[in-house]
């Protein structure tokens, strides 16, 4: 990695959210979107924030990404305060955000190109990522020629091309059909295994949260706050059979009960 020893000595990809508040104020009204969020996400952890729509989970993610500011408190990534977006925090959005004028390969190489990484090195990096997302033969296609699932795979590869400390995912599979969604989840776990980055994942899908995560944080609305935390005590190797595991089912029941209220 280009940024030498300082980083390796310290943690890589630890997010510390401390006493975070987000209040929207207009002349007439005041809306508290996030209330006193305390959360630490460890190095190389896969953590999912689960909650109903309107609980502020996306806002929280966008604050960590630096795309939105907060009213009070702080967000630190590896001890450095977040004050704006940056290449150290890759993000995958719910909507399709590939650059339509770039080919699949050019999309993946967008970040490295900005960093000034030489062509050959960029090429081998994008080859590696294209292989990982199993889209080698689509390197010259434009996004409009891809299916929804393919687009999101490229979006993941594009975010990873920067070798980010943290991967932020805002309901990335929300728009996909059920079958594609399952495939994408398995692929994402593969990728996470290989890339060793911290993943902060947002969803309102209980099954998705349990299948993917090591830890689940449940948020509630009005104002957006953390209700409860769960460790997912499932084998590290997540195969489709894991969905029938008793722990999976009991956790699912508990989460469903919590979200109902």
């Amino acid at each position: 990695m280009q940024t030498g020893s300082k980083e390796e000595a310290a943690t890589r990809g630890e997010i510390v959210i401390h006493n975070l508040h987000k209040v929207y104020t207009t002349k007439k009204s005041r809306f508290e979107a996030l209330h006193n969020i305390q959360l630490t996400i460890g190095e190389n952890e896969f953590l999912t924030i689960l909650g109903p729509s309107g609980c502020g989970k996306s806002t929280l993610l966008r604050i960590v990404a630096g795309l939105e500011d907060h009213t009070e408190g702080s967000v630190m990534v590896d001890g450095e305060e977040v004050i704006g977006p940056g290449a150290d925090r890759g993000m995958v959005f719910q909507g399709y955000t590939l650059f339509p004028w770039l080919t699949v390969r050019e999309n993946i190489e967008y970040g490295p190109k900005l960093k000034g990484i030489p062509t050959l090195e960029r090429r081998s990096l994008s080859n590696y990522l294209l292989k990982m997302i199993r889209l080698e033969s689509f390197d010259k296609s434009y996004p409009k020629q891809l299916s929804g699932g393919m687009k999101q795979r490229v979006a993941i590869a594009r975010a990873l091309a920067n070798r980010p400390k943290v991967l932020l995912m805002d309901e990335p599979f929300g728009a996909l059909d059920a079958q594609t969604k399952l495939e994408m989840q398995e692929m994402l776990l593969d990728v996470w295994e290989k890339e060793k980055t911290t993943v902060l994942f947002i969803t309102h899908d209980i099954d998705e949260a349990i299948f993917l995560s090591q830890r689940i944080v449940v948020m509630g609305a009005g104002p957006g706050r953390i209700l409860k935390e769960f460790n997912v005590e499932l084998p590290a190797e997540r195969t489709p059979e894991v969905r029938e595991h008793p722990e999976f089912l009991s956790l699912k029941r508990e989460l469903a009960g919590l979200l109902k209220h």
């Binding site: 940056g86 890759g90 959005f93 955000t97 650059f99 967008y110």
Partner: peptide, 12 residues
Amino acid sequence: SHDLLHASFTLG
């Protein structure tokens, strides 16, 4: 699209 713009920011 603001999302496209935001994507580019998060890519550095």
